[in-house]
Computed example of a mutant assay.
Amino acid sequence: MTTVQLADLGPITQLRAGQLPRRLLQLYVGLWLYGVSLALMVRGHIGLAPWDVLHSGAIRHIPITLGQAVVLFSFVVLVLWIPLKEKPGLGTISNALVIGVAADVTLGMFAAPDNMVARVALMASGILLCALATALYIGAQLGRGPRDGLMTGLARRTGLSIRLVRTALEVTVVLLGLLLGGTLGLGTVVFALTIGPITQWLLPIFLIDLGEATPQAEVGDNPEPHPDLLR
Rank of each mutant, 00 (worst) to 15 (best):
Leu84His: 03
Thr183Asp: 15
Pro83Lys: 02
Thr194Ser: 15
Arg119Phe: 00
Leu20Arg: 02
Gly89Val: 00
Tyr137Arg: 10
Leu193Gly: 06
Ser94Arg: 01
Leu186Gly: 14
Val71Asp: 00
Gly185Tyr: 07
Gln68Arg: 11
Phe75Asp: 09
Arg231Leu: 14
Ile62Tyr: 06
Leu27Ile: 04
Asn95Val: 05
Thr106His: 04
Ile82Arg: 09
Pro83Ser: 01
Leu9Val: 00
Leu229Gln: 07
Ile195Trp: 05
Asp52Leu: 09
Gly196His: 08
Val189Lys: 05
Thr65Tyr: 02
Gln68Phe: 01
Met1Leu: 07
Gly47Ile: 06
Pro223Phe: 02
Thr188Asp: 09
Lys85Thr: 09
Leu160Asn: 12
Val70Asp: 02
Val53Lys: 03
Ala192Glu: 04
Phe73Pro: 00
Ala213Ile: 06
Ala103Tyr: 02
Pro215Thr: 09
Leu136Ala: 08
Gly10Tyr: 02
Leu25Lys: 03
Leu90Thr: 03
Ala121Tyr: 08
Leu184Ile: 15
Ala217Gln: 12
Leu24Asp: 05
Gln141Thr: 07
Phe191Pro: 00
Gly182Tyr: 08
Gln14His: 12
Leu193Trp: 10
Ala131Gln: 05
Leu210Ser: 12
Ser94Leu: 10
Val105Pro: 02
Val219Arg: 13
Pro197Gln: 09
Gly30Lys: 09
Thr65His: 03
Ala118Pro: 05
Leu210Asp: 10
Ile162Glu: 05
Ile198Pro: 12
Phe206Trp: 15
Ser74Asp: 02
Leu207Lys: 12
Leu160Ser: 14
Phe75Leu: 13
Ile93Lys: 11
Leu6Ala: 14
Pro204Glu: 04
Ala124Met: 12
Leu38Ser: 11
Gly196Cys: 08
Gly67Met: 02
Leu107Asp: 07
Gly108Lys: 00
Gly35Ile: 01
Ala118Met: 13
Ala96Gly: 13
Gly57Leu: 08
Val77Phe: 05
Val174Tyr: 04
Leu27Lys: 10
